[in-house]
Design a binder for these strands. Structure first.
Lengths: 144, 144
DNA sequence: TATCAAATGATTTTCATTATCAACAATGAA
DNA sequence: TTCATTGTTGATAATGAAAATCATTTGATA
């Protein structure tokens, strides 16, 4: 399992340790699709080990993010979510405002233009967040 | 004052009333540049009327947003900010991760591509949020 | 084995935002 | 005008996510 190795290496580089709890949390995280909130993940992990604390889940998710295995996603609803980062290349998000369906999208030309736009203002880009909001075809049909 | 008329009309369309407090909050909001947090605005309004409640500021900002006079901006730091919407055409945000300097940007080609991207997935766009993060020239120079 | 930093879980704290509620004010019908 | 209805407000409590605290446990290493 590649991810676990990466995490172990990341930890030991910092003088941190791989523990049982961190292993469980990583496994649970890898088993998810799309986006998990710390709370949801806490629920999943607890099924395996009922004694785990939610603070540990929060802490581990931060670590996974720093290790490059997870990525924070903020839909602006007040809950931070996490998605896989390793082996999942960058993408942006398109969200249906009616059914909350969610699609991952990328457009290379947009990415390119973002770089240029940044350069124009003297910035060196380190990252970006782009959320497109709209109504999906499904919901438009249903309305009719 | 155009904005006040718009707000009054918006309110009466909904069977709501223009009040002294709402007027004060609108004025204070119009007097700001860039982005205000509810907390900051509360501070400003209180100078004019020390009895105003912060819940009223929160409520009024929501109303202003619905009226199309304000726009919510979420930089992801846990505080929602508001910026002028009326007479201020849409723009995106570029933020320096080091000094937190903030620039408003637009790129018509990006906007256009976003539309096309949405269409490709059957979405009709209603809006979007785009935040570009990077390091500004100032900060890069200072580092050297 | 002794030592010491890291890790954990329970708990508390923080902080932004929202809900609740009683008091008050405007509106409109009778 | 009177009275009922409904909107508005401010104070306060409640919520909920995230971070901080802390006593205790764990694990690596000398």
């Amino acid at each position: 399992m590649k991810e676990k190795d990466i995490f172990i290496r990341f930890l030991s580089d910092r003088g941190l340790r791989m523990t049982n709890q961190r292993g469980l949390i990583l496994d649970a995280f890898l088993g998810t699709e799309r986006h998990v909130s710390p709370e949801e993940l806490y629920g999943l992990v607890r099924r395996k080990d009922g004694t785990i604390g939610q603070a540990t889940v929060y802490r581990t998710l931060k670590l996974l993010t720093e290790a490059g295995l997870a990525r924070e996603v903020d839909f602006g609803d007040g809950v931070l979510r996490y998605e896989h980062s390793y082996g999942h290349e960058h993408h942006d998000h398109m969200i249906c405002e009616r059914c909350h369906r969610h699609i991952e999208v990328v457009d290379e030309r947009i990415e390119e233009l973002q770089e240029r736009l940044a350069k124009k203002y003297g910035f060196v880009l380190t990252g970006h967040r782009m959320y497109l909001y709209g109504i999906c075809s499904e919901c438009r049909r249903r309305k009719a």
